[in-house]
């Protein structure tokens, strides 16, 4: 599959994400937003769009807001077509914030003109940087090969998912919650296991069709077993994040 890792100033973990897809034998390239703007590359030439984490445009105004506004101005139509064709979009961390601001998530009634939710300042009012446990909540092309409980790191100051009550109800009804934060034993999380105070302990969401995923924790930072802090105490064949990448490219 042809994979684009979207970049602007301030994105990070592009190399980890690039490496992940490369390891899985995919055709992957970095795609700077300006290449789309200048018409040197087209979204339609890719099968997967990966929006990485980071602090795009300094996270000024709101996390992801500037990245989203620029992407919208340049490529909203192409993005809509991309989603409608069932191609895959994944946004990690800052990328999740971008997808929410774009209205590509939660998109309970299709892609929305205005944001239907927000990823706002963590309840702790701090940058939360730690390993979290995630429980698979619903099956999708992003989770089919993923074990029931995995461990991935978060690193964000704005990751608290909030939305209106009726939208949250639709999200649950549509089975859009991909992963929830849990305690290590899989029971319901409170702080610090839910690092941000997210509604319903939501860590990752898909659109109702299941081909767009936003996830706060970083799967690309746990692709190899030795990226886990307990790598020399617990034997793993793969890093936990590997399975999310693997799921995406399985046919």
């Amino acid at each position: 599959m042809r994979v684009a890792i979207l970049q602007i100033e301030g994105t990070n973990c592009e190399e980890e994400s690039y490496t992940a897809f490369k390891e899985l034998g995919q055709e992957v390239e970095y795609l700077h937003l300006n290449l789309l703007k200048k018409g040197k590359r087209n979204l339609e030439d890719y099968d997967i769009l990966f929006i990485p984490g980071g602090f795009s445009a300094g996270d000024y105004v709101r996390a992801g807001a500037i990245f989203a506004a620029r992407l919208k101005a340049i490529a909203m139509r192409a993005l809509k077509d991309f989603v409608d064709e069932g191609k895959i979009i994944i946004g990690v961390c800052n990328g999740f914030q971008v997808l929410i601001e774009l209205g590509l998530l939660p998109a309970v009634d299709g892609i929305s003109e205005k944001p239907e939710a927000a990823l706002m300042t963590n309840d702790s009012n701090r940058f939360e940087c730690r390993w979290t446990y995630l429980k698979k909540e619903n099956e999708s092309i992003f989770t089919r090969d993923v074990p029931n409980i995995i461990s991935l790191p978060v690193a964000h100051a704005e990751g608290k998912f909030v939305t209106e009550k009726k939208t949250l109800e639709r999200v649950i009804e549509n089975k859009q919650i991909a992963f929830k934060y849990v305690k290590p034993d899989g029971s319901r999380a409170d702080y610090p296991w839910n690092p941000n105070g997210s509604m319903e302990d939501i860590a990752a969401l898909t659109n109702p069709e299941g081909n767009v995923l936003g996830i706060m924790p970083h799967p690309e930072r746990a692709f190899f077993p030795y990226q886990h802090p307990d790598w020399n105490r617990k034997e793993r064949e793969r890093g936990d994040g590997f399975w999310i990448f693997k799921s995406m490219i399985s046919k």
Binding site: R62, A69, P115, M120, V162
Partner: peptide
Amino acid sequence: IKKLFVNPII
């Protein structure tokens, strides 16, 4: 305001 400054949900 619509395009950048405000997220109407919050």
